[in-house]
Design a protein around this nucleic acid. Structure first.
Lengths: 213, 213, 213, 213
DNA sequence: CATGAATGAGGGTTCATTCAT
DNA sequence: CATGAATGAACCCTCATTCAT
């Protein structure tokens, strides 16, 4: 029933509402949705439990808001791939780059999403699945385009290939740390290299002799 | 504290205890650990709530039992890779085959594991992470071995490469359906092909012209 | 409803039933009646929970049996005081001696009694109170007898005096340890001395100058 | 862990929190701690079970609060005896008076204390024992002082004498009734008389002939 | 807007007791 | 006699949500 956050919440820059959502995201990531109590969220956001309900209708609203924000970027990416005129190789490069930059930007919320999305109520869950399918289809189309253009191996099964690409990209949220040893740029370069080669595109020939692992 | 299931449970073929664990696994997969009540598990297993406690000490025990079973096969795989004398290409084939056959065999429990493992208490969680690290290291060693043998591209970063391989293999539990369009054999073949090529091994040259997607 | 232990239980020397009651007494003393589970009692007596019920009808039966044994000696003592022809001073000596020897002999069960008797169901509780009142009346009569004989101070309130005597005697179960520094003989001597003097009987005149504390 | 009642509870005169503690004390006295359910306490205090938990963290907290209040007065008494300059006879008079006035004032809570203190968790129990030991030592010192001053019989064992005094004083909670035949003043006078004489102090000589039982 | 109080449904767990084998 | 299995009632506690002030 209650879907949208209350009106006024969107208006201010870093509004109280955003502070609440961010606090909830951090807690949900660390302790899970069910493992986090409304009281904890209120405390983390600097209000009391009662006051919190001036900004939300339901605990689930918070989860929805987080999931929504987590998907904003990815959702757009699928559409861009479809309308783009680039060749498949460039599209794949673009997909890796944008997908992982999105991951970098919304890391916490995306991690919450991966942790909790299977617990979402049916309607929400279906919505998510639908978006994911759209995105996956865009990747499949990309593979087929590459095969048509002759740059991707012709024998590839598009479903498996898309699954492999998405699995690799989606896995990053689980282990990437902003202050870790690997920068996101390195991840993007490395994965682009691996994924292109996996579909049969010769890449980085110049480095093949010169560089070590 | 209480970790082991009560003794007698293990003895019979498909004992009552196993029925309970299976029922719990199915429910946890569908509704999540927190979303499943002890009463539901008891009903699904054909007992009353009180009777259930003859077989378990705690709801968490059930989750542990499931997670444990989910990991039995994978844990062994890592060690086998380390001691094997095969070359890196064969090892990678073996890893894909065994990993995914394990996924096929314990599908429900592995799905529960992926859904719930981030909510495990610290000690358990650390244990899981340790096992995963061991496995990941085995894969990294495999990649390095391939580079040493000259069959894998020398420029690969072993961490990213291992991450990509594992991401691909681990993703299967999320979408594979025993009665789906793709058989596990097809998945194994397709992923072996993609992963070998991603690390720079020329594969299936004969099919490159002949077969379509 | 169920009051008596099952018939056969009484027959053997140190029967299984007695072992059970003793085990229960020790546990009740240490953990309380409510804090002790039937399973623990069964284990301590070397049977399983199910088997235990061949010897008892109810957990409460065990408590009753313990309380009963705890009172056997004291109950008799009251009657003996009433029928005795001794003078009040000797009667008081006798009461202290017998009461505390009874405490020494049934220490564990008496401690259980003092710990749990206020939780007994009404009927049982009333029974206990009745016995206690009888005993107390015997002590009051003793005091009055002493006053009539001219050996006890005439101004004493018999109720308060009896209360004080009983309080002193009943307190021993709480702190006496068979392996402690004080032997029961020393306790008996010390309390006899104190109580006699409290009622106005000159005692131990010979030691008054010679001995230190 | 959680020991203190929630903050606001202390502020008002007869606050809701106090009403709850009083209700719990009355129930614990009548039915025992284990025998009283949280629901009953809530009902007796005029709230629902859920609301009760705004004021307490745990059922045990209620018991602690009661035990604490029960000990406030007695704890102080021990210290006063130690620092007092009075002679032993006056100190004993003071001890009886103050101890029993404390009993009178906190009768219900003290009765709960005596009924339940053996079931307290170790840490709490040890705390109580420590306080009791301190108090007992103060009484022993009082006896020794009396012996040094020459007013108490020299041969008394201080441990037994203190035990007897405390047993007498502590027994009052078990049978004293505010609306009973004996007033607390009478109890105090009677016990003072008995206890003084028990330690060898001649008392009430004038009444010896004049008054009857 | 803010909040402390109140609620009620539900959850996991314990345990004395019964009973078929 | 012995026992493992089963039961069901009760218990303590948590928590999202509502509401009067």
């Amino acid at each position: 029933m209650v879907v949208a956050p209350k009106a006024r919440a969107y208006e201010l820059g870093t509004s109280r509402y955003e502070r609440i959502v961010d606090a909830a995201a951090e807690l949900f990531r660390a302790k899970g949705y069910e493992g986090t109590s409304i009281t904890e969220i209120a405390e983390a956001a600097g209000l009391t439990k009662g006051s919190l309900y001036h900004y939300i209708h339901t605990k689930e609203d918070l989860l929805y808001a987080i999931v929504e924000e987590a998907h904003h970027s990815t959702a757009a990416l699928g559409e861009q791939l479809v309308v783009s005129r680039a060749d498949a190789v460039d599209k794949l490069r673009m997909a890796v780059e944008r997908h992982l930059r999105g991951t970098e930007k919304n890391l916490t919320k995306i991690r919450v999403f991966y942790r909790e999305f299977s617990g979402l109520p049916h309607e929400r869950f279906a919505e998510i699945i639908a978006r994911r399918d759209t995105y996956e289809r865009a990747i499949r189309d990309l593979v087929r385009q590459g095969q048509d253009e002759g740059t991707f191996a012709a024998h590839l099964d598009t479903r498996l290939t898309a699954a492999s690409i998405l699995a690799t990209l989606n896995s990053v949220q689980a282990w990437f740390r902003p202050d870790g040893e690997l920068s996101m740029t390195e991840v993007i370069d490395g994965f682009t290299d691996l994924l292109l080669r996996s579909v049969g595109v010769e890449t980085r020939p110049e480095r093949l002799e010169s560089r070590a692992r």
